Simulated scan of single mutants.
Amino acid sequence: MGFNPLEHGGIPLERQIRSWRELNVAPIDADHCDPYTRCRIITMNGIEVEAILFNHHLARHCSDLDLKRQLAQVRYTEAQQQKAVNWLLPGVSSVLETTIAYEQVAVDLTAWVARMEPDPYLAQAYRFGVLEDFDHLYRYANLFEMIEHRKAESIVDGLTEVMPGRPTTRHHRHPVDNVRESYDRRAANPLSKLHALTIMAAEQQTMNFYMNTGPTYVEPIARQLYQEIGLIEEEHVTHYESLVDPGESWWEMLVNHEYNECYLYHSFMEQESDPKVKAIWELHLNMELEHLRLACDLLRAKDGREPQEILAPELPNVLTFEPNKTYLRDLIADELDLTTLGTGYVREAHERFQQMQEAFLGGESAPSDQVIDMHRDMLGREYRMETEGPHPVAAMRER
């Protein structure tokens, strides 16, 4: 039997407030932690930020003061959760080091979701996006070695390869071509809803991180690269958020958010290797079970529906951070030349794409290309970390 969050009681809401001492969590060891522990932390920080922002937006559309008070109480505990999770990251890590970890999350989380997604159209959306995050990891890894004289291998630990994906300059598309078709809330597999919320929240947090940390650098190339990739992360949020059916009611969206938090905390608790971090995942799961119960009560009261009408009868198989090297190499070989047109995908650069390229690049070299050129000039090579033979496109050309 799987785990059904609807059948388990959580910690009562009035007992969820934690003291400063309880929130003062010990950070992970930056040099000796499991890289996927850091990935799970970054993921859950994004999930909690999305929960807080969604709750705020819901409260802004709510006139019932008693309900606004309940939302505020849940939101405060979510904010405490977010602080506990995000503060697990060590203060000794530089912004660039954390950035590379963010991109490792984007690569291996999105690749896993693409592999597991039951809907072919949604799976294509994840496959398309992951090839761009893969290239971002490569660009930041080159910047990291130039500025900090360290290799990204010290962060990703060989679990994720560092090599070119779809070139970052080709990610600048006309905004209208970043909008996808949504799943149908009445027919979608419940797992598809969880996937869409998870990747949307993770990309949103990456967008926010780059927006706020990019200008903290002195080096012009670093400021420019964060600005360029930050704009692409905005495209990615548009890409992923449009997959969610806008016809879901506020209360249905609330239930889906809380159920997804239960799913992820349960998943990460099952696979966490760090005992103190695992204890936090378990504590937060027990908090989220109560948040889900309250959301289900609101669904019944406001929509007249039972949560079983929209949720899976039990949690899916745990979401897993694991290497996706072969899968990504196959994607590079098969789908590297794709771009978007309307809500679909094409292999040929179309007029609107070309116009956007000209408008954004203005005939100049983009920061994402400059950083590779500067790395070659400085060190006589570019930085890559390939663990399974030559780049698949290069291998195809050699054949």
Results as ranks from 00 to 15, higher is better:
residue 89 L to D: 04
residue 89 L to Y: 04
residue 89 L to S: 08
residue 90 P to K: 00
residue 90 P to I: 01
residue 90 P to C: 05
residue 91 G to P: 04
residue 91 G to L: 09
residue 92 V to T: 14
residue 92 V to A: 13
residue 93 S to K: 07
residue 93 S to L: 13
residue 93 S to V: 07
residue 93 S to M: 15
residue 94 S to G: 14
residue 94 S to K: 08
residue 94 S to I: 04
residue 94 S to E: 08
residue 95 V to K: 12
residue 96 L to A: 11
residue 96 L to D: 09
residue 97 E to G: 08
residue 98 T to Q: 14
residue 100 I to T: 00
residue 100 I to P: 02
residue 100 I to H: 00
residue 101 A to K: 01
residue 102 Y to V: 05
residue 102 Y to T: 01
residue 102 Y to M: 12
residue 103 E to R: 06
residue 103 E to C: 04
residue 103 E to L: 06
residue 103 E to H: 10
residue 104 Q to K: 11
residue 105 V to L: 12
residue 105 V to K: 02
residue 105 V to A: 03
residue 106 A to H: 01
residue 107 V to W: 03
residue 108 D to E: 15
residue 109 L to E: 02
residue 110 T to Q: 13
residue 110 T to G: 11
residue 110 T to I: 13
residue 112 W to V: 06
residue 112 W to P: 00
residue 112 W to Y: 13
residue 113 V to R: 03
residue 114 A to Y: 09
residue 114 A to R: 02
residue 115 R to N: 10
residue 115 R to V: 08
residue 115 R to F: 05
residue 115 R to D: 11
residue 117 E to I: 02
residue 118 P to E: 03
residue 119 D to Q: 10
residue 120 P to L: 10
residue 120 P to E: 14
residue 121 Y to D: 08
residue 121 Y to A: 10
residue 121 Y to T: 06
residue 121 Y to W: 04
residue 123 A to H: 11
residue 123 A to T: 13
residue 123 A to I: 08
residue 123 A to G: 14
residue 124 Q to F: 09
residue 124 Q to L: 12
residue 125 A to F: 01
residue 126 Y to T: 07
residue 127 R to N: 12
residue 128 F to E: 02
residue 128 F to V: 02
residue 130 V to F: 04
residue 130 V to C: 08
residue 130 V to L: 08
residue 131 L to T: 08
residue 132 E to P: 00
residue 133 D to G: 13
residue 134 F to E: 07
residue 134 F to P: 01
residue 135 D to C: 11
residue 136 H to V: 05
residue 136 H to Y: 07
residue 138 Y to I: 03
residue 138 Y to L: 03
residue 139 R to N: 10
residue 140 Y to F: 15
residue 140 Y to C: 13
residue 142 N to M: 09
residue 143 L to I: 09
residue 143 L to E: 03
residue 143 L to D: 01
residue 144 F to P: 03
residue 144 F to G: 02
residue 145 E to D: 13
residue 146 M to N: 10
residue 146 M to T: 08
residue 146 M to C: 11
residue 147 I to D: 09
residue 151 K to L: 12
residue 151 K to H: 14
residue 152 A to Q: 01
residue 152 A to F: 00
residue 152 A to D: 01
residue 153 E to M: 08
residue 153 E to L: 11
residue 153 E to I: 07
residue 155 I to V: 14
residue 155 I to D: 04
residue 156 V to E: 06
residue 156 V to Q: 09
residue 157 D to G: 00
residue 157 D to W: 00
residue 158 G to C: 10
